[in-house]
Design a protein around this nucleic acid. Structure first.
Lengths: 188, 188
DNA sequence: TACGTTATATAACACATGTTATTATACTAC
DNA sequence: GTAGTATAATAACATGTGTTATATAACGTA
């Protein structure tokens, strides 16, 4: 019954997603998306009940991109821990606006998507214990420190405050983790 | 010649400053300030050529507050280095919206106000050398690491991602710095 | 006392944005 | 082919924000 549907959800989401990628959510509005699609605003409100709904679907796509990075870091058996940290920072470097949205602003949505939650934190800590040989308590502290440090680099990269190369990042993270570890093992 | 001036620059800036303190710049607009002052918008545009100008003066006041924190950290001769880091984090805890504005968003204004610039970085590094006995090169690397870690904590605190107590922060920072140092001295 | 100046209020304009009412169009089912 | 319906365009409305035009009132000065 309907005439050809020219503008589907996916296309609209993609346009919005790309705007957010470059400018954050501030650049997104109905007329701007319509212009870039070459249509009026009607297809947007036909496919989404409101801009809010569209923005939420864009958020999901952003979070999917983040998961993509973190999963790719995970496949490394030996150095999974290290690669997850590097993937986190790489994401901040490749998609700074996304990183800011996910981890540098407090919103209702972002609250759930934080790295340290009880479940996955436990897994990571137990996995780490195998590598480090630290006690559970020490490994937990160690993990928090590595996480803080990693997050620190990522934030600096996302805001373009510093421009580390990939090598500099790897070296910075690696040597710091090594030093912290020496500190734990040497100290006690 | 003029009738009594009821609304002066300072009052207007203070109202805006307090809004930003609680809600960031998003909460600021002419009518809101007018309402809180109990006046129309005229006194605002009489005292400032535009909202932009007002916002910039608020930004200066925000940066002054930051400097106040950092100076109070500096007076400690012995542990100036440590106290500056703690002051940085304390500022992020006490004024999270300010911290986000100064250090978690890239703006033309914020670019100049970043912690590491060549001049003061050099001073801090030379000062640090006296305490650590590291070479200039090593001390530089050490300083970057401490700064990254400190910034990491501050960002997590500013976004309310974690809620460290002052003691937890001091302990976290202190023990990490100690470990890094052991790493440097032990390693080589 | 009258004038000129300035602070303020009221009201309006300009613009951006979300949203919707109305209309036109093109396809499918009959 | 006609009718019904989904899609889209046009245009408008509602609201929020920066900004300004106009009017009013108060104060110092002549």
């Amino acid at each position: 019954m309907p005439p050809v549907k020219k503008y589907i959800k996916e296309d609209i989401i993609n346009v919005a997603y790309n705007i957010v990628k470059n400018e954050g959510y501030e650049g997104v509005n109905a007329r701007r998306i319509a212009r870039e699609l070459g249509c009026s605003v009607q297809p947007i409100f036909h496919n989404f009940s409101s801009m809010d709904e569209l923005n939420k679907e864009v958020y999901v796509k952003i979070y999917d991109k983040y998961k993509e990075y973190m999963i790719s870091g995970k496949d490394n058996k030996e150095n999974a821990y290290k690669h997850m940290g590097l993937a986190y920072i790489k994401f901040a470097k490749d998609y700074p606006e996304f990183f800011k949205i996910l981890f540098m602003q407090k919103t209702d949505l972002s609250a759930e998507s934080i790295v340290i939650n009880d479940d996955m934190g436990n897994d990571v800590i137990k996995m780490g214990q195998i590598l480090t040989g630290l006690s559970y308590e020490e490994q937990t502290k160690f993990h928090v420190k590595v996480w803080v440090f990693t997050h620190g680099i990522a934030c600096l990269v996302a805001t373009r405050t510093v421009q580390f190369t990939d090598n500099e990042i790897a070296e910075l993270l690696e040597s710091t983790v090594r030093q912290m570890l020496v500190g734990y093992k040497g100290g006690k």
